[in-house]
Amino acid sequence: MPKITYVDASGTERTVEGKTGMTVMETAIKHNVPGIDADCGGACACATCHVYVDPAFGDKVGKPSAMEQSMLDFAENVRETSRLSCQIKIRDDLDGLRVTTPESQH
């Protein structure tokens, strides 16, 4: 099972087992990883599941859809590596993925 590491804004790391097909957001919720609010539950409607993807995984994770990109365009503290974690589905080749959560989701 692919392992996902979440790093919070203060640098604390939490590594959990992800499940193929579930999203990086759902995996955080399931494992009580703080730092992701996910108010809309993954509908790509709220942008409170914002993460920064480790650049080493940038290509593998891929680019956001047009819908996601325009939600990100208006989120706070957006960077080149920003993604909405509810839109990243876990696959076997994402084993070892590291994402960092922002200071705040609101």
């Binding site: 819908m67 325009s70 208006f74």
Partner: peptide, 9 residues
């Protein structure tokens, strides 16, 4: 409708 910028702004 399918217009996130309009929603967010």
């Amino acid at each position: 409708v399918n217009s996130p910028p309009e929603f967010v702004v």
